[in-house]
Design a protein around this nucleic acid. Structure first.
Lengths: 145, 145
DNA sequence: CGGTATCCACTTAGATACTG
DNA sequence: CAGTATCTAAGTGGATACCG
């Protein structure tokens, strides 16, 4: 949003909003980079990626079954799929111990760790604004009661 | 992740990751709050919400058709749906001018603005780590060539 | 202009069965 | 244990037509 005085927000609101933000956008991003970035973001804007990132952030290194225990609502298929995609994107490191039965461990890479840190702000936002969202929903839903 | 010395990351990697993060989690979140927060997050972890949040952040106040012009790939149905949900969640403010033909303007609420600020970090992360992700993908894809 | 309603193609994800 | 393969139910989103 432009930082001129057409802003519909008070200084206080803006300051509060900015408290969730660390850095400014880099200058002069090309439309091409823009598109790629949007691609990456929308690719990661996935329910399970979010949850698994959170779990690995909290617990460190986990086996496949241990992750599953932390997130029982996920199906085995989706867990495998999500982990595979995160591995492909360089977010998690998969270590296979060739024993019988096999043992596979997952942990965040440095890249995944940094993405987790970025997501932290969203998490904090959600906690701090949970009530406002709830109230907004109630207000909206009771408008046509 | 636990901050003990079992961490698989170097101090530098951790410092770098933390540069995307503003605040720590609040202490002692209950499992109940946890679930609600996860709900909100996964509810917002949606492709179009992300894009529209970005557009309104950049442009300020826009009419329905103006948003659509900024995001031509979206269908009218999804645009309406997404905007409606964002309005319900208190993220955007919808102003209807009862003229003929009707004119409807959308802008971020203070709540939406603060969520946008939080998402800013993800955006910055994507820009700065675009290349690493691309390389990781190439490496992964060429492993079984 | 800014929607809503309907229909339909396609994707997605859960359940189940099987395997190295 | 940690997957893969297959089938199917449900959900999602696009196209189209129409409306205040």
């Amino acid at each position: 949003m432009a930082d001129d005085d057409t802003s519909p927000f008070t200084q206080e609101e803006i300051a509060r909003a900015q408290s969730y933000r660390v850095r400014d956008y880099p200058e002069g991003t090309s439309p091409e980079v823009d598109a790629l970035v949007k691609d990456i973001i929308t690719g990661f804007a996935d329910k399970w990626t979010f949850v698994i990132l959170d779990v690995l952030w909290d617990k460190g290194t986990l086996r496949f079954s241990e992750i599953w225990r932390e997130v029982p609502e996920i199906s085995q298929k989706m867990l495998t799929q999500t982990l595979r995609r995160m591995e492909r994107d360089g977010l998690v490191i998969r270590t296979l111990y060739p024993s019988v039965p096999p043992k596979v461990e997952y942990r965040l890479s440095a890249l995944g760790l940094s993405l987790g840190a970025a997501f932290c702000n969203i998490w904090v936002w959600a906690i701090e604004n949970l009530d406002d969202v709830r109230k907004a929903r109630e207000r909206f839903d009771s408008r046509d009661a």
